[in-house]
Amino acid sequence: MKKNSPKKAPKNSLARTIEPYIWIAPSVILMAIFIVIPIGYVFYMSVSEISKAGLVKGFAGLENFSKVLGSSKFSLVLKNTVVWTIMVVVLSTVLGFILALLLNNKFKGRKIARAIVVFPWATTLVIQASAWKFIIDTDYGALNTLLKSLGIIGANVNWTPTPEAFFAWEIACGIFVTIPFVCFTALSGLQSIDSSYYEAATVDGATYFQQLFNITLPLVKPSLTVATVLNIIYVFNSFPIVWTITKGDPASRTDTLVTYLYKLAFYNGKQGEAAAVSVIGFLILLVCASVYMVSTLKKGDE
């Protein structure tokens, strides 16, 4: 080819070099407009002095950050966010994985069971959270009504007597809506495992748990890793559940970083500080996700 058409070659190779970029250009441009520019703007806002009407008044240096870090609320909110993320991610991963193991067995109605598992995931979070709020409501809640009609309780029980109780319910709701995602990621991993491994292990006399820890887990690990990283990011940034159920009340005891910054921006009119909180959250996520990815992928290679 090359020898027969020496003149065409450079033109071809140029076109070939350019072509992929043309193909990816639309997505790159879209990402630049909808992701990179807004992020850049948030960084810009976080070091700017912004009036309550939203006008940028000038450079503020790190003043927004020092105000945020100096406020008594911030450490409380950060603690909540860490508890929220760890509890939801860890518990939903464990429960989702167990559910995936169950659904990987052959039984009658497996397809229906799998479809049902998707429901919580396929429903809008706001609707999910509203439903949970309704379930645990003291006066009209479905839970109280159910327990009363079953004769288990005599009078309405206040299921959320303390902020901690409220937060626990929010975590429960978070776990409930996150399980399907973990379950399906794990399930896809499980289905790709060759059954001959298990046959060989059974012949060698391995118990169920030996098989689970020595065959299943190592082979499902890559898909679980991806699910966990995505979950950390997603749960950390989750807004609708907390906002719908408590709005962070009382006194920020159930606030996470995202609801806190929303209130800062739109209830207190402190957009500069809100942007600073956003940047702090971004950096935390960046570090967590990178560390997790690097360490687990390294182990995977060994």
Binding site: P38, I39, I233, V258, A274
Partner: peptide, 14 residues
């Protein structure tokens, strides 16, 4: 993905 999600989260105050 982190960037994308942060952008979604922060879209509110930009």
């Amino acid at each position: 993905m982190v960037l994308g999600l942060v952008a979604c989260g922060s879209g509110n105050e930009t």
